[in-house]
Design a binder for these strands. Structure first.
Lengths: 349, 349
DNA sequence: TTGAAAGCGTTACCAG
DNA sequence: CTGGTAACGCTTTCAA
């Protein structure tokens, strides 16, 4: 059987309380006593039982991270940073994937409420971010990604602005027929900011909608008429999906001057489809992405994309989470992380 | 304050034990009683405290997953599957990253011993897989990736065989000067299977060494002399690193006929370097990878690589883990998952 | 500065 | 089939 505080206390000839004091190092313990206790700890190879500690303290020292799709390299980068930065704060990270079944969000929320995790970083799949808006009583939650709500804290980037700027950048390069890849499956005629309800918006949460808006704004500002044929819808933000829809598009349309993909991952599939169709990038058709994932520097040709400081993004999320964990009634805050365009060969003139 | 079993019991007019019985659904409870209890559960919005349950049961319902580098897409695919398949068994997944500081392995092991996780899937960084070989008393652990040891269960692929076959495949295509990218930093003159100790072997654990062996075996079998200039070392298996070393290599050497990269991620960097140097793939130099990660289908040109059934791989790891968790003294087993070559345009003749 | 005892929320044992 | 009671291992009052 494993050693407990009691065993250690007995061996050291002190009380459990003293052992606890030594371990947590809050109160001052007489050096002599401390020494004896530390020796006993070593001797018995003591390891604290975290379940017991969690039960007693009401905190588990772990946070949850819920992302729609762990396969996407973007998810990997977020996960990587959350794990690393949470570790610096002494937190462990439990991970969950929600796209497959949106009710996983509920599960995680209830795990949070069940004291298995002290807080939650959630990248909601649906616009109507079900779990968050529905749940009666919420644990400490921070959302990453754009969602219209004000119940919980949130860190995001300016999707509309970034998409507008990228479109403008392409216009500046002299491209006129600019298509986008990754719009929501059901193209909403209007370009308002009203909510699109339901589960059809699986691809990239609200981001798809917001980026579409930015794209249209830039076109409109340039006096370029809006062409539905140049908005290529995608139900899932995967390279497979992108390769298929772009390939199909090229069979029935002239290649546009430029393809603005709503994700680097989409851009990968798009580059592949263009290569298969024998369309030269960027000579015959430029390609841009969004996210600046690591591999976007190494595509052929290297990919122009939107960059934002991922570390700052995640750090902000953890700050907000810490804030909420410390004070459940703290007012929800919203942090917007700046972005910038990284111009590479895929859009060179 | 949140409702506990006691509150529920009081409201339903039964004892806590009965509530527990209803929740866990093991013993038979009179339908009438069950109904009353379930109503009370709903009424009070009861959520079990998992810390308490963990303390009582000695099991937390979570497993740990420790990978060297969460950034690699390969890691993302493994993580994705572990999360999904563990979920099916009712397990949560805590994730940790070990490459940055190898002593994280120790931390995780002790978390396991601290009852925060019931078992551990570990992809060790170093050959001398410190934590596992050193620790006195081990929790349930399964290793993924090739390491010489027999203390714990392990799932792996035949790295030597796969590398040999890929090299052979390239020879069959008519390529003669075949280089590899990703050998260990310190090229060990000998090609034996003896352990290479120390922390210099950071890149890809033992895999780098084993794949080098397979490559050399194939060359030798074909009667092709071994050329140290064609073994390009890499200290970290990243696209950045690969792009740099391959780029540098091309400045001082003629391009080889083919570049066999020990990872798809390395191949991405390599393709990028070749493109920068104006070397056409596969006409002037073929490229092959290893792992068949999702994006390898979408490189330009699509990448020839080694595929293995990742789902089967992870499922095997979970099976072995379950085995160990059920019986601590079960004999360690080793499972080898089959692989195959996927031939794409990057090595076409 | 340290000790004794209580209690966190569950589940298991043993009666009834 | 169900109820009381004890116990998991830790921390935190309160006293000494």
């Amino acid at each position: 059987m494993r050693a407990t505080v009691k065993d250690v206390a007995k061996l050291a000839g002190v009380s459990p309380k003293t052992v606890s004091n030594v371990i947590n190092g809050v109160v001052f313990v007489r050096p002599e006593t401390r020494e004896r206790v530390e020796h006993a700890l070593q001797e018995l190879d003591y390891v604290p039982n975290l379940s017991a500690r969690g039960l007693r303290n009401g905190r588990s020292g772990m946070i949850g991270l819920a992302l729609p799709d762990l396969l996407r390299p973007y998810s990997a980068e977020i996960t990587h940073l959350v794990v690393e930065l949470a570790h610096q704060r002494g937190w462990g990270v439990q991970i969950e994937q929600t796209a497959a079944q949106p009710d996983r969000e509920f599960e995680l929320l209830s795990k949070a409420r069940a004291n298995l995790v002290d807080g939650l970083i959630l990248n909601p799949v649906n616009l109507d971010d079900s779990a968050v808006t529905t749940a009666e009583v919420l644990p400490a939650v921070v959302l990453i990604g754009d969602v219209d709500q004000d119940r919980v804290s949130q860190v995001a980037i300016d999707n509309v602005g970034a998409a507008r700027e990228m479109t403008q950048h392409l216009l500046d390069q002299g491209f006129r027929r600019i298509a986008v890849v990754g719009t929501p499956e059901l193209p909403s005629g209007a370009s308002g900011t009203g909510r699109v309800g339901g589960s059809t918006d699986a691809a990239g949460t609200a981001a798809a909608r917001l980026r579409t808006i930015g794209y249209r704004e830039a076109l409109e500002a340039a006096g370029i008429p809006h062409d539905p044929d140049l908005e290529i819808a995608l139900d899932r933000w995967s390279p497979e999906g992108a390769a298929v829809v772009v390939g199909r598009h090229l069979e029935t349309h002239e290649p546009p001057d430029a393809l603005f993909c709503f994700t680097d991952t989409i851009a990968f599939g798009t580059l592949s489809a263009l290569w298969s169709a024998g369309v030269a990038v960027p000579q015959q058709c430029a390609v841009a992405g969004f996210d600046n994932i690591v591999d976007s520097r190494f595509t052929v040709p290297p990919l122009t994309t939107i960059d934002f400081d991922r570390r700052q993004f995640v750090e902000a999320a953890l700050d907000l989470l810490a804030e909420r964990m410390a004070d459940k009634d703290a007012k929800p805050r919203r942090v917007v992380v700046p972005h910038r365009i990284v111009s590479r060969a895929s859009t060179a003139r």
